[in-house]
Amino acid sequence: AAMDSISEADKDNARMDSALAVARESQKRGEVPVGCIIVFNGEEIVRGGNEVNQTKNATRHAELVALDSLYKWCSEHELSRERVLAESTLFVSVEPCIMCAVALRLVGLRRVVFGCANARFGGCGSVMDVHSEEKRYDAAAARLPLVCRGGVLADRAVELLKSFYDGENPHAPMAKVKKKAGRKR
């Protein structure tokens, strides 16, 4: 059993490595370096990086960008979104923010693995417990809770954010943000 869990952790690390690569690509485009991939049936099907500056839409976080790609992927492969989402795992370099955490629950995703914590916006334990709370997602909007695992390659995600914020983002007057991110875990 111990061997199994080690290999599971190794697998998560490898996935997170890919998510971090997406984050670096975002940074090259002048975006906050956050990246994610969605894995279905043991395979990466889509990826998404932060696109806020490019789109001038502050909701274009990596997770929501990836969801749009997933919708496309599903129609191309003639698979139901609900099924794919329910069986997929999202690997994202930074803890999903409150908005994304709600969004992921609303669309019916079930499992999230994230890198560093997000002390400013985190919806999976840092600022709010969107992932596990019941009261706000009852009835019509109800979906099952998100199963979260954090702290995977957290140091590398923090490094990436640090290098970004030290280099100053010309588009956003919000620079100081995630300095403390990651320390929590």
Partner: peptide
């Protein structure tokens, strides 16, 4: 606005929000 939309508005740096009806559930 729901919790998700409220957070989207935080990200978007909105100044003020006027809503007509409360949305007790979310």
């Amino acid at each position: 606005p729901s919790v998700m939309c409220s957070m989207a508005l935080v990200h978007s740096r909105i100044g003020r929000v006027f809503y007509d009806q409360p949305y007790p559930a979310i």
